[in-house]
Design a protein around this nucleic acid. Structure first.
Lengths: 184, 184
DNA sequence: GTCTATACAAGGATAGAC
DNA sequence: GTCTATCCTTGTATAGAC
């Protein structure tokens, strides 16, 4: 039920999805939904928690805490991509929030904290020379996130591009850019 | 009036923005708005046209049509960033569409055509060796767009980062990645 | 051109039968 | 657990005075 609801939210936008069409897609009635959840916002809360729990768990793993800054950054970027793909609909919903309600604002706040931890890693990697210093650190972080977050807008889990391959590609482009990589 | 309306749409989302709050932010009443425009969707149409006209104009310029594929790609990316910043609120609105109505779907179709022209440029640049061939061409294009489009989510026109500097940064990161650029 | 008042539909949510 | 019927609010839009 949560899955179908979130799919509907992502198709039409949370606000534009009425309990009526939700009931329709669930093959039931509005009232039946209210037996299971307190209301529309309850469904949103469940979905956002899944997304945020997944993302935050990446930062808890040993690979995110030990090693060189560049390696930690690579680990976290890979982890973020994998979670994003694994929890695709939930993260999609999270990334499209506008902060209209208290619930939405607190979810955005949690997301900001996650972003901030990665920004810190970028700074560390700059300090030890593994990330370029000719461009402002926040600009780098934001463009990096833009690239990764955009995945929810086009990645199809049933296509031929596997999550691992996608993560490899993201890291290769993030660190090396569009140019042909040097032989080694 | 269009500016204020679009700002409201971007703050709260188009669907979540009622004519009531719109009137409030305009310092007038709902009825007064209807004197000037046919309805809420009319405001959306005006805004989307501005965004799409701006983006499409980039492809018409001589720099987008002449020169090496890599130079054309650089020109178009720079142009897209500059339009995106110049028409920031309008492009923001465009990039957040879900395609709920016929109007939204036709705008998305115009946007897809724009994206497709740039994808073609990436392919040309790959063919002549200026873009890496170890990663799928569509993946590259999508990550590239993700990075650029994300700008609407964080760029503040009144900050210290100028549009030209931003465009330089985007192109530097897009082609060279996070690594420190080689001396030259 | 802008206001007040209001029509009319749609949306979220509940009551109560089954 | 799910249905029908219904309440109340909000939303888009219009009528008509000023």
């Amino acid at each position: 039920m949560l899955d179908i609801s979130v799919a509907a939210f992502n198709d039409r936008g949370y606000d534009a999805t009425s309990m009526g069409v939700l009931a329709e897609r669930l093959g039931t009635t509005k009232s039946a939904i209210y037996y299971h959840v307190a209301g529309k916002e309850d469904l949103l809360r469940l979905a956002l928690d899944k997304a945020l729990d997944g993302l935050e768990s990446v930062l808890e793993e040993p690979g995110a805490r030990n090693g060189s800054p560049a390696d930690r950054l690579r680990f976290v970027l890979r982890g973020a991509v994998l979670v994003l793909v694994r929890e695709l609909p939930y993260v999609t919903l999270l990334l499209r929030l506008r902060g209209n309600t208290e619930l939405e604002r607190s979810a955005l706040e949690r997301r900001r904290r996650f972003d901030h931890e990665i920004a810190t890693l970028v700074d560390l990697a700059r300090a030890d020379g593994s990330v370029r210093t000719d461009i402002d650190s926040r600009t780098i972080t934001r463009l990096l996130f833009g690239m990764i977050n955009s995945i929810v807008e086009w990645y199809k889990p049933d296509g031929s591009l596997t999550p691992d391959q996608l993560a490899d590609d993201v890291i290769a482009i993030a660190f090396g850019g569009l140019q042909q990589p040097a032989e080694r």
